[in-house]
Amino acid sequence: MANSELNPHIESLTARHARLEARLADEQRRPLPDPVRLTQIKREKLRLKEEVSRSRTH
């Protein structure tokens, strides 16, 4: 991936990560948070974080 393409890609991943963070916070504020949903959100956040890390090192 070219340098000029890298920043928008990382920005997109970071924005998706932030949206997941908000979804996670919303779910945790529910009276009875769904543990399966929490796990799914956390896994997706981790996947995005790892992808951002890989993108920055390449």
Results as ranks from 00 to 15, higher is better:
residue 55 S to N: 10
residue 47 R to W: 07
residue 30 R to P: 06
residue 4 S to I: 11
residue 24 L to H: 08
residue 17 H to Y: 11
residue 45 K to P: 04
residue 6 L to S: 15
residue 13 L to V: 01
residue 9 H to S: 13
residue 31 P to D: 13
residue 58 H to Q: 15
residue 24 L to S: 02
residue 24 L to V: 02
residue 9 H to W: 15
residue 51 E to V: 04
residue 33 P to H: 00
residue 38 L to E: 08
residue 32 L to M: 09
residue 14 T to W: 00
residue 18 A to N: 14
residue 44 E to R: 12
residue 39 T to Y: 06
residue 41 I to A: 04
residue 32 L to W: 07
residue 3 N to R: 01
residue 41 I to C: 01
residue 26 D to N: 11
residue 49 K to P: 03
residue 10 I to T: 08
residue 14 T to L: 01
residue 33 P to W: 05
residue 16 R to Q: 15
residue 31 P to A: 11
residue 46 L to V: 05
residue 46 L to I: 06
residue 26 D to L: 10
residue 54 R to H: 14
residue 42 K to P: 03
residue 30 R to I: 02
residue 6 L to K: 15
residue 41 I to V: 09
residue 23 R to H: 11
residue 56 R to L: 14
residue 19 R to A: 05
residue 1 M to A: 13
residue 5 E to Y: 06
residue 17 H to N: 13
residue 36 V to Y: 04
residue 30 R to C: 03
residue 33 P to S: 00
residue 15 A to Q: 09
residue 24 L to K: 09
residue 12 S to K: 06
residue 56 R to F: 11
residue 50 E to S: 08
residue 56 R to S: 09
residue 30 R to M: 11
residue 35 P to A: 08
residue 41 I to Y: 04
residue 40 Q to G: 02
residue 19 R to L: 03
residue 23 R to I: 02
residue 50 E to G: 04
residue 6 L to A: 14
residue 25 A to M: 04
residue 29 R to D: 12
residue 12 S to M: 00
residue 4 S to K: 05
residue 53 S to L: 11
residue 47 R to D: 05
residue 45 K to N: 09
residue 38 L to R: 05
residue 10 I to C: 09
residue 24 L to Y: 09
residue 4 S to F: 00
residue 10 I to Q: 05
residue 19 R to M: 05
residue 37 R to V: 12
residue 29 R to H: 07
residue 14 T to I: 00
residue 58 H to D: 11
residue 23 R to K: 13
residue 5 E to N: 13
residue 22 A to K: 11
residue 30 R to Y: 01
residue 23 R to S: 10
residue 4 S to L: 08
residue 7 N to S: 13
residue 28 Q to P: 05
residue 36 V to R: 06
residue 10 I to S: 00
residue 15 A to R: 05
residue 39 T to W: 11
residue 13 L to Q: 04
residue 31 P to C: 06
residue 53 S to G: 12
